[in-house]
Design a protein around this nucleic acid. Structure first.
Lengths: 226, 226
DNA sequence: GGGTTATGTCGCAGGACTGTCGCAGGTAGG
DNA sequence: CCTACCTGCGACAGTCCTGCGACATAACCC
């Protein structure tokens, strides 16, 4: 299951660093530079975690935290340059779940994000069942099993498979997969998805030329067998 | 379900960018360069969202917003180069639902459009029932079933069928279908629709020569059996 | 009925879509 | 530094789609 992290941060450099690190961890990253933007995108995309810089142009980060908390249970982590404990306390009281102070250690931030994700994942009905016929996905270990035996898949292959199985039979367009797995950046690409599907089929299908699990829907995209 | 976005913008470059982005997201795009044009097309086509530039030649965008709001519930998003809050406030008071300021981040605009679409879609009865006699459409999988068995249809055939069944027995003109399914590009075409209907009948009718589901209304167009 | 228009029917060719596979630059690990 | 793997890219081939044109047929009007 691909997790989405929203970053509300106006400093381009810091945002870039965060994006890089988060993507390295396998998250999908959404970005906003203002509180207003952040609010809209959070409502629209429903990310799994939100990182908020307290010092934002216009509306203050604290107010964003309150607004978010008013309508959503999404875990909020404050990222602030101010070591001033007053701000941190105010942030937590406003409804934030955790905080880190700049300059932060990326690894630590990643750890805190995982913690928040784990916490928020519990109330849900466990991790969704990522199973499709003989194929079984273990998000914890990033392993793919087929008839109980592990088969090696690359990082991107894993995410594509997770996205497809998570969709439970619905057709996913190439665009959708590009956005969800590759991120917005690769918008203009050509046959990347097709190639990856081809490689996936070679790993999960008995007869890759006549797929029974990972099906093509001509003109629309791909889908897993229901 | 194909969503339609109307863009009222006189700047060719910006309009082009918007079109590209919107089409990438899977929307059908209508364009107008003046408020007058916009008003006519909106009434004619009933798009799902309207983007309005405030600075238009002739009638001001604000007046367009008022005119639209007087006769329609369509979500309106203002796109303006002016960060001046006065204009934005005036726009929202005139009946707009949201706004973005140029230069805008395409991603953000797309997100806001999705938000507006979701908001306006809620009052409807969820996914419509795309069924007509023995024919059943599954938008999720882009499949067409007939008496429970899947029959292969192409992308365009699927959309035409969806449009016809969605109209629940009403007659749809060739022009209507051309615009809704093919888009404006193929405006001047001749018998494309007839051809497609012919092919569809061969797939869904027991006796294609004596159609009982997909009926001809001479002089007007086609319709599904009620 | 005869003329006229609208629609049905069907084959064809160009093009769009997808599968397939090799290649090379990049990256991580040793 | 070397190796193995990953990954995006491009090329080619096969399949299917689709617009077009031509003719046949049916509906309409006088």
């Amino acid at each position: 299951m691909i997790r989405t992290v929203m970053v509300v941060e106006d400093d381009d450099a810091i945002r870039m660093v965060l994006r890089t690190n988060l993507e390295d961890e396998g998250y999908r990253v959404l970005e906003a530079t203002t509180a207003e933007q952040g609010l809209v995108i959070v409502q629209d995309e429903q990310p799994d975690v939100v990182l908020v810089d307290l010092r934002l142009p216009g509306i203050h980060g604290l107010d964003l935290v309150r607004s978010l908390r008013a309508t959503s249970q999404v875990p909020i982590i404050i990222v602030t340059a101010q070591t001033d404990s007053h701000d941190v306390v105010a942030g937590l009281e406003a409804g934030a779940d955790d905080y880190v102070t700049k300059p932060f250690v990326a690894k630590e931030l990643m750890a805190r994000i995982r913690t928040q994700l784990r916490r928020s994942a519990q109330p849900e009905e466990g991790d969704e069942d990522l199973t499709c016929g003989p194929i079984e996905l273990h998000p914890d270990t990033a392993e793919v099993m087929r008839n109980g035996e592990q088969i090696p898949v690359s990082r991107i292959e894993f995410f594509v498979l997770a996205e497809l199985i998570g969709a439970k039979g619905r057709v996913l367009s190439r665009d959708h997969l590009l956005r969800k797995v590759w991120g917005y950046g690769n918008a203009g690409d050509g046959r990347v998805v097709d190639n990856l599907i081809y490689r996936l089929r070679n790993k999960i299908e008995d007869d890759p030329a006549n797929p029974e699990l990972l099906l093509t829907v001509r003109g629309f995209g791909y889908r897993m067998k229901a």
